Computed example of a mutant assay.
Amino acid sequence: MEQRATSYHSQGLNRALAILRLLGKASTPLTLAAIASQLELPKSTAVRLLLVMEEEGFVRRSGEHPAYSIGHAIHEIAEGYRPPSMAEVTAGVLSRLADEVGFTANLGVLEGPSVLHLHVAEPQRALRFATGGMLDFAYCTGLGKLLMSVLPEAAIDAHLPEAEPYTSWTPHTITTRAGIVAELERIREAGHSVDDEERNRGVTCMAVLLPTDDAPTLALSVSGPSGELDASARERLLPVLNAAAAELVALPGFDTALAPLRSRMTLA
């Protein structure tokens, strides 16, 4: 009996939410007949639900031949709505990836000569690579180089240091524009990027693009000890990273979280 009652109330809630969605999309108020017809509801059911929602302020009734529209309670709720951040949306996938492969997972986007870390997840192990902050250089990191590789050559200068030679963080750092241009061409051919101790001694990073159609372009990377991220390990990891990148894009809320970034990059 309790299960049947719960099912009944769930059905009522589903129908009420369907009415709110219908009214929210409508350009003009809808009559009872229109609501019942479009949602294939008995008029008696629609009347009962609309009465409750009107009493609670979720719908508003107007006109000689009553028609319904969204009420003040919906607007009050909407004013308090805060879109989820990219970190909130992607945290589960990145944490699972980090634990699965044993390396730090990082999601980033270009911001001038830097990579902005949108979210970083560290694996549950004693030896792990920790990022130094929210921003890092683009020219000497796997994320940065990969993100620059999708740009036309004329656009990469905005993401490089002002003067050559660039700071050499390790003996492997690429310190000239010509060297970066050649590296970006190799990345385009490979479809992924590698920072092999270019930013930090003993640390290797591998990055892939997220398969999105619109800007801004995002990239996903894993970073860890160079001895564990050699060429054979990277070959095994590539399909895992690409699968995780596709999973991120398909997450509910991903497009919503991407919208503020898109606006920010457009204004910049």
Rank of each mutant, 00 (worst) to 15 (best):
I70P: 15
L267P: 10
A259R: 14
P216G: 11
V208N: 02
M134V: 11
S7T: 15
H65Y: 13
R264K: 09
D196R: 08
R186C: 05
L184H: 00
G108Q: 00
E189T: 12
F103R: 09
T167Y: 13
L116D: 00
G12F: 08
A163Y: 04
R21H: 15
R177V: 12
E189G: 04
A33H: 11
R96A: 15
R264F: 07
S27V: 08
G12M: 07
G132T: 11
V194T: 12
A245C: 02
M206N: 00
S232E: 15
A163L: 03
E2A: 07
V249A: 02
E183F: 00
S62F: 06
T175V: 10
Y81E: 11
E235I: 00
P113D: 11
E56R: 11
P165T: 03
H172P: 03
V249F: 01
E162R: 06
G71V: 01
M53P: 15
V120L: 02
A158H: 08
V101P: 09
A257L: 01
E111D: 14
N200D: 14
R177C: 13
M265D: 15
S223I: 00
E162N: 05
K43R: 10
E111Y: 03
A73Y: 02
P29I: 03
T170E: 05
D255P: 09
V249H: 01
A155R: 10
R4L: 12
P216Q: 10
A245N: 01
V109F: 01
P161M: 06
